[in-house]
């Protein structure tokens, strides 16, 4: 059962990769990468149970979940503003 799930997940990751390659816009590629990340997290978790060492793989999946989100937002920010430090230019500075 677990092997089946991992196989299906790998196949779906392939589908997401096709979308990432085909684009057409940069946002489609980020979306595909984001979906790919989610599937990787679930796949790593399932894989841990499959090989009988879930404790180790669960930690990896948890860290991947936290880092993957930051990665998506960072790439989005670069694509929107051109760098990582800038906030929205038209907004006035935050009042104290």
């Amino acid at each position: 059962m677990l092997i089946l799930v991992v196989t299906v997940l790998l196949g779906t990751m392939g589908l997401a990769l096709i979308r990432a390659v085909r684009g057409p816009t940069v946002y489609d590629r980020i979306l595909a990468a984001n979906a790919f990340t989610t599937k990787t997290i679930v796949m790593v978790t399932t894989f841990g149970f499959m090989v009988g060492e879930p404790g180790l793989y669960l930690d990896i999946a948890l860290m991947y979940a936290l880092i993957g989100f930051i990665g998506t937002v960072a790439v989005l920010k670069v694509s929107e503003f051109g760098n990582l430090g800038q906030t929205r230019p038209e907004l006035p500075p935050k009042p104290k």
Binding site: V5, V8, G11, T12, A16, R19, V42
Partner: peptide, 13 residues
């Protein structure tokens, strides 16, 4: 879950 993942992947395409 596996089916939902597959449907989602098809939907992305």
């Amino acid at each position: 879950g596996a089916l939902a993942m597959l449907v989602g992947g098809i939907g992305i395409l």
